[in-house]
């Protein structure tokens, strides 16, 4: 007896609606784009400035998140200390925290009248808010969890006996970290950096709260999209298209790497 099992409509229909729901707005972005004025618009100072600010800050944030996040992941995966679980939770909190809350928190900590900000100003003459460095700080705050998460996952999957083998040869912990651990988790590290960079590139809430909107200094692409929407919608659409293309490229780049491992 042959029995054909039909896909139930009650699952098929919502599934198809979900696909349309995801794709239709993106299609609208492409359809409504001012293709005829593209070449003129894309070299406008607003777009070029936003591109430059975004490129510099997001790369800076990805590097800073790596420099801080990988050692943190190492501590979480390879050492025991009181409150380790709490620290892990805190390190991942920015994933869930509304970015605008993060931005406000940064302002209270590092702002001109913030707890550490006042001291930074007095001691070093350094002001983070409303500066390009401030954009990097805001982006790092929200992007670092991606690095901690991927690096810690990779460390937990790494066969620790390789580290033991290096230790029996006399290698110090730092040497083991640099010569054995980092090269062996490099693919995951690359994926983590890419994710962190993508998150930094798209960062809006914490950035506009902490660093504001100073064209050419702190106005990144997402901030410019939001500002331009009210007066020059073409600029907003073009910037959005660029961000869409970058996101797609990252998705394709990660397919063979990170997404398969999870």
């Amino acid at each position: 007896m042959k029995r054909t099992s039909h896909l139930p409509w009650s699952l098929l229909v919502p599934g198809l609606i979900a696909v349309v729901f995801l794709l239709f707005p993106l299609a609208a972005l492409v359809i409504k784009a001012p293709w005829s004025e593209m070449t003129a618009e894309i070299s406008s100072p607003e777009i070029l400035n936003a591109l430059r600010v975004s490129l510099v800050t997001s790369v800076g944030a990805a590097l800073l998140a790596t420099a801080l996040g990988v050692p943190l992941a190492y501590l979480l995966a390879r050492t025991t200390f009181p409150g380790r679980r709490l620290v892990r939770g805190l390190a991942l909190l920015p994933l869930l925290l509304p970015p605008v809350v993060g931005g406000l928190a940064l302002l209270l900590a590092f702002g001109r009248r913030g707890i550490a900000g006042e001291w930074l100003l007095d001691a070093f003459g350094l002001t983070l808010p409303f500066s390009t460095a401030g954009v990097v700080v805001a982006q790092t705050f929200v992007a670092m969890p991606f690095l901690v998460l991927t690096a810690e996952g990779a460390l937990n999957n790494l066969d620790r006996r390789y580290e033991e083998a290096a230790t029996t040869m006399g290698a110090s912990r730092l040497s083991v970290f640099g010569h054995v651990i980092v090269p062996m988790i490099l693919p995951s590290l690359g994926a983590g950096m890419l994710l962190a960079w993508a998150r930094a590139l798209g960062e809006f809430g914490a950035t506009i709260t902490f660093a504001g909107n100073l064209p050419g200094v702190t106005t990144s692409m997402p901030v410019e999209v939001y500002i331009a929407l009210q007066t020059r919608p073409e600029t907003a659409i073009i910037l959005s298209l660029i961000l869409l293309v970058v996101s797609l490229a990252i998705l394709v780049g990660l397919r063979g790497n990170w997404l398969q491992h999870t």
């Binding site: 006996r161 390789y162 033991e164 083998a165 040869m169 006399g170 054995v180 090269p183 490099l186």
Partner: peptide, 27 residues
């Protein structure tokens, strides 16, 4: 362990996969 100078050859050898034979030995 790193200060004992006790060399170990492990059961599955644990050669570092990202290093050449020479680099393994130099390490």
């Amino acid at each position: 362990t790193e200060d004992r100078r006790i060399g170990v050859v492990f059961q599955d050898l644990l050669l570092f996969p990202h290093m050449t034979v020479e680099k393994n030995i130099v390490f």
